[in-house]
């Protein structure tokens, strides 16, 4: 079935079986391997991507459902190869990861939170990532990373405002 997805700002036409999940389509039809399969039944959150502004589980959507939708995957987060965005860099600063398998989903869940909440409480941070299971970190350094990213984003906004931008 012909389907058109806008992935990380770029429109791609793919031809997939209706049963192919968005997760598999991103990985196998679009060749974007940063979105990971963890449980394929909607619990672990490793496959989290942003669809039309919301963090969702890509294993719980079929690619054909997403025809015409805007999808952001982890590959669309960094501005340029080798240049991390603030959230990604904050994960590196606090070592908010170990094996890296749940990390793309965590980063996107964090970005979805920070898009709507500039100064999240720890409770809000924990709630935002509660659907993303991490087996390595015990979440402590992930919460620290998101806290740090929020602070940095607020400071850069303040600096931008003061500079009259």
């Amino acid at each position: 079935m012909k389907t058109e997805l806008t992935i990380n700002g770029r429109s791609r036409a793919i031809d997939v079986e209706p049963r192919m999940t968005l997760l598999d389509a991103l990985r196998d039809a679009a060749g974007l391997k940063g979105t990971h399969a963890g449980c394929e039944h909607g619990v672990c959150g490793a496959c989290t991507v942003i669809v039309d502004g919301d963090a969702v589980r890509s294993c719980l959507m079929f690619a054909v459902q997403c025809d015409g939708m805007e999808i952001t995957t982890i590959e669309g987060v960094a501005a340029d190869p080798g240049e991390l965005d603030v959230v990604q860099d904050s994960f590196c600063e606090t070592h908010g990861l170990q094996c890296g398998y749940c990390t793309p989903g965590m980063v996107l869940a964090a970005k979805a939170l920070l898009a709507v909440e500039k100064d999240p409480s720890d409770e809000q941070i924990r709630d935002a990532i509660s659907g993303n299971i991490c087996r390595c970190t015990g979440y402590g350094q992930i919460v620290e990373a998101i806290r740090l990213a929020a602070k940095r984003l607020r400071e850069s906004n303040t600096a931008a405002m003061e500079a009259g931008e």
């Binding site: 209706p18 999940t21 394929e40 039944h41 909607g42 589980r57 719980l60 079929f62 054909v64 459902q65």
Partner: peptide, 26 residues
């Protein structure tokens, strides 16, 4: 019917449900 799919799709993935067709009303 495929509405949100948050319960249906896991059942499909585990082949506990095997509809001939999904009618996407979203």
């Amino acid at each position: 019917v495929l509405a949100g799919g948050q319960t249906l799709v896991p059942m499909l993935a585990m082949r506990l449900s095997r509809p001939s067709r999904l009618v996407d009303i979203t």
